[in-house]
Design a protein around this nucleic acid. Structure first.
Lengths: 344, 344
DNA sequence: TTGTAAGCGTTATCAT
DNA sequence: ATGATAACGCTTACAA
């Protein structure tokens, strides 16, 4: 049952039927009424989205390309909150959300790509290859990284990390700080990293800026930043973080770090859980700092000392930019220090 | 830059260019090579998805229609896990995921609807009106409710709730059990509900089956099921649950329930948090039972006593059904009792 | 191996 | 107010 069938059935032109659905003002209410009624009777569900999008060039679909797998992104509090913000805006604007992952087979992304009216790319610069295959003049907003010629949404990672680490070291000085990075190395590495490890370039990952902030604070408090021991985790999940953190905690008293500067709440919470299981006192034996400000860190005792980034707001902003509701220039969002109990 | 342009530029037919992209075996490798090279040079990104989907009738898009708002669904552990399962399968099969909410304006759903190759409807029977406007012979899988003529995926809610409540009442008998329902009443109600409240019909919500299971166990242990006090919450979030739970906990010792049968972990965790804040001992003063088995309930002390449902597996199964990888008949998934410490 | 041509179901621009 | 008609960009018999 197509629009054309319906038109024939009714003895009117296709244009008129189309207008009945799309431009009520273009035909007499009486005729429109009749067309709509007959459509319902014959089981015509309204104009086909595929045909319409071909004809008009717009689909009302906005695609979000996620750096991580969909599985991860949907389970992670930070990216879910981001998506949730995106969805909220799209929703009110009559658009829908197509989820893509940069980890998917390239062809899938490219295939669906030309379907979408715009792209929000989240978390990590996609490969050039992928990037080149997006529609040429598609509207695009980058989140948490920069891409030339398109606006981006960022959070003030470096200053936030400086501030929270500075505060920690000022209030209760520590002897043995350590840093747990998140996917910072050029080659995957789950464990301790030496100072001479090859790191991802700053434009490819926000964890570089967070690291800079921590380093600046450490330097201010007399630590040779490059001497502060660092570990790296490849994925922000309990399963992947746990072995690395066990390795850290396995060290004997006096060698074990007494301050863990983490790149995410997920990592910090994993450390917290594992430390508690060993009977270590928080924050006396080890104090902990996270990043993100996820609910899970605040609904427990001790509450996580962390930096709150408004992931939802990032999503809303990116969505508004894509839809042209917001001027298309890059924005830097503020964060907020949350003084919890894991690092007084 | 279209396929036709490229063909003209190269002096070949559109069919040949199309084949170069879709059916490598239909033309000489040499020519194909030349076409692909030229395409790249001229900035042709491959066949347009909109046009292709119109022509072939398939878009490789699967839509999930969620009962709750996208914002809620993306933040909730249970539905995220479900989506994550769906995404996992779609991913490996070269499909992508379009997220819709039954709460959206109807037109948005209908508009995007004809775009998708199939639908997974999650959580709640959508309105008949919405339902009628889905493509007539679209493939459709229902999750957590039934829709005639289409397969569904369920979890054994009633037996699971019976089992966990029965176990609780057997091991440590209690005097004052109470039930906290989730969106069970026909009219929204956030608070205590009388036995004569009008409830949603069983086919519209799974919480009816959970309630039946609890009631059966209570009856077995000598409680007049309809006398057991019940509360209802309209949304499975801390913010909405908290006032209702405070109302429950506000009751004086001896009147306050000593066993809370909840419909979700989220609700049980909220109760747990609020009870702990008041200095109530868990499980001595109040014991708690949840449903879902979300991670948050197990990564804390005391761990939640609950029923684990494999939400991810529900998603994977639904996705496989939609893609025809699985026979299209309804399935009932098992659950697993998790004996935590909130109800020994 | 390659080309021709007929749609796929709409919408938009003209006429009438 | 309504109708003809030409795209939109592609796929796929079928013909050469």
């Amino acid at each position: 049952m197509t629009l054309k069938d319906l038109a024939r059935e009714l003895g009117v032109s296709t244009a008129t039927v189309s207008n009945a659905f799309n431009r009520p003002d273009q035909l007499s209410p009486k005729l429109r009424e009749r067309i709509l009624a007959e459509a319902k009777r014959l089981g015509y569900r309204g104009p086909d989205a595929k045909a319409r999008s071909l004809r008009t060039g717009r689909s009302r679909i906005i695609a979000v390309i996620l750096a991580e797998s969909l599985t991860y992104s949907l389970n992670d509090a930070v990216s879910s909150e981001f998506l949730s913000g995106v969805a909220e805006v799209l929703d009110t604007q009559g658009h829908t959300l197509l989820l893509l992952s940069a980890r998917q087979a390239k062809c899938q992304i490219v295939d669906s790509a030309s379907m979408a009216d715009g792209f929000i790319v989240y978390g990590l610069m996609p490969s050039d290859e992928l990037f080149d295959s997006l529609p040429l003049n598609a509207s695009l907003v980058a989140v948490d990284f920069n891409v030339s010629g398109h606006p981006s949404v960022h959070v003030n990672n470096e200053p936030a990390c400086f501030e929270i680490a500075d505060r920690a070291l000022t209030i209760s000085p520590r002897q043995r700080p350590a840093i747990i990075n998140l996917r910072l190395t050029r080659e995957p590495c789950n464990g301790r990293i030496d100072p001479d490890y090859a790191l991802l370039p700053p434009e490819r990952t926000i964890t570089r800026s967070r690291l800079s902030g921590y380093h600046r604070a450490l330097a201010k408090h007399g630590f040779a930043a490059e001497r502060v021991p660092m570990w790296n985790v490849e994925e922000n999940t309990f399963e992947v973080c746990a072995p690395v953190i066990e390795e850290i905690l396995d060290q004997p008293d006096g060698e074990r770090p007494d301050l863990l500067l983490c790149m995410s709440d997920r990592t910090a919470l994993t450390a917290l859980t594992l430390a508690e299981r060993r009977g270590l006192r928080i924050p006396e034996d080890i104090s902990l700092i996270g990043f993100d400000g996820i609910a899970e860190g605040q609904f427990r005792a001790p509450r996580l000392t962390t930096v709150r980034q408004e992931s939802g707001e990032k999503g809303r902003l990116a969505a508004r930019m894509i839809l042209g509701l917001e001027p298309a220039h890059s924005r830097l969002l503020d964060t907020q220090l949350i003084p919890g109990e894991t690092c007084p």
